[in-house]
Amino acid sequence: MTLLMDVLPEQLGNWANLLTGKPYLWQQGEWIAGQLEAPQAHLVLLAEQLSKSALQQSLQVLDTAGIGVELVSIKNIAQRELVNLRLSSWSPELKAQLQAIATSWDIACVPALPLGTQPGLVLMDMDSTAIQIECIDQIALLAGVGEQVAAVTRAAMEGALPFSESLRRRVKALEGADASIIEQVIANMPLMPGLITLVEGLKAMGWKVALASGGFTPFTGHLHDILQLDAHFANTLEIIEGRFSGEVLGDIVDAEAKARILGELAEHYHIPLSQTVAVGDGANDLVMLAKAGLGVALHAKPVVQEQAPVCINLLSLEAVLGLIQSA
């Protein structure tokens, strides 16, 4: 069976009934029933509504690079459309070219994807990933040192300042502030769009979900409780007589700690690293993103965009569920 690109519907969501569940190979402007002998990578395109133009522009890049393409599936997951393609080869340069043209859709161009049909683990950062704020910035704002602390936060997330140093500096600025501020922040802590969809979808699949945050335990603990997560890790603020002492207790959860936590959780739950997904937005997430089977940067800072395996810029956390279920 052959499908001519020119006569296929403009919205990829309308292709599903035409594909009959079989793989197709891309050859000179048409899709021919068949599959790649030895695929080496995946390319997933995602959007609220995915257009044929997005696929055509991507295919043009792949044709120019001499890459063989197999159309695996077109799906609607969490009310988002996606197409999963297998590729005959992969390179960082190819990924960069495909990312550069993705102006109205998100992409994942990776050597491998985790299998949603097998047990897995998602480990997320919290601030600006699972939630829409940086908790320490909100504490500082209520404590009257907002601009001072926010500037240090920005420098840390962009990689301009070592995370541990930045955290101690920010916490020191809170010395003497009333610790009840924590409850005020929790009461107004906005979840990242797609978070509940992602967690509920993962739990339905039997996956483990955890947080590893450079933030603080009251906030990760709150999310752990309301979302029924499997584990959470964060820093402990010292509180003396109801006020912040300006110190952090114990070891700091920095970039290396997050990566270590990923490995320890995977070992604890008997999950191979290839079946792990890490999600974050800042420079202190990069080691974790690199270690995971799939590393996803969400609305990330420029330094993270340059290095992360996958960057989600237009959609939100529901896209992570789409990637896991795309095969």
Rank of each mutant, 00 (worst) to 15 (best):
L4T: 13
M5P: 00
M5L: 15
V7Q: 14
L12Q: 06
W15E: 07
W15V: 04
A16N: 05
A16V: 15
N17E: 14
N17P: 00
L18C: 02
G21E: 09
Y24R: 00
L25H: 05
L25D: 09
Q27E: 15
G29W: 06
G29P: 03
E30Q: 15
L36K: 07
H42V: 04
L50A: 02
L55T: 00
Q56N: 12
Q56C: 10
V61Y: 08
G66N: 10
I74Y: 15
K75V: 02
L85W: 13
L87Y: 12
L87E: 11
L87H: 10
S91W: 12
S91H: 09
L94H: 08
K95G: 03
K95D: 14
Q97R: 15
L98Y: 11
Q99D: 15
I101P: 05
T103S: 14
T103M: 12
S104C: 07
C109D: 11
P111V: 09
L113N: 00
L113M: 09
Q118A: 13
Q118N: 06
G120D: 11
S128Y: 06
A130F: 01
I131F: 10
E134A: 02
I136W: 00
A143S: 12
R154S: 11
A155L: 12
A156W: 01
P162G: 04
R168D: 12
V171Y: 01
K172G: 03
G176H: 09
Q184C: 03
N188W: 01
M189A: 03
P190S: 05
L191Y: 14
T197V: 13
L198I: 03
V199Y: 09
V199P: 02
L202I: 03
K203T: 04
A204F: 04
A204C: 03
M205F: 08
G206A: 03
G215Y: 02
T217C: 09
F219H: 02
G221I: 10
L223C: 09
H224G: 08
L227P: 04
Q228E: 15
N235H: 10
T236C: 10
L237G: 08
D251A: 14
V253C: 13
K258F: 12
K258Y: 13
G263N: 14
A266H: 08
E267R: 12
I271E: 07
I271M: 07
S274F: 00
Q275T: 01
A278T: 02
G282H: 01
A283V: 03
N284Q: 08
G293S: 11
G293R: 11
H299P: 02
A300F: 07
A300R: 05
Q305N: 11
N313P: 00
S316L: 01
E318L: 05
L321S: 09
L321A: 14
L323M: 10
Q325N: 06
A327I: 07
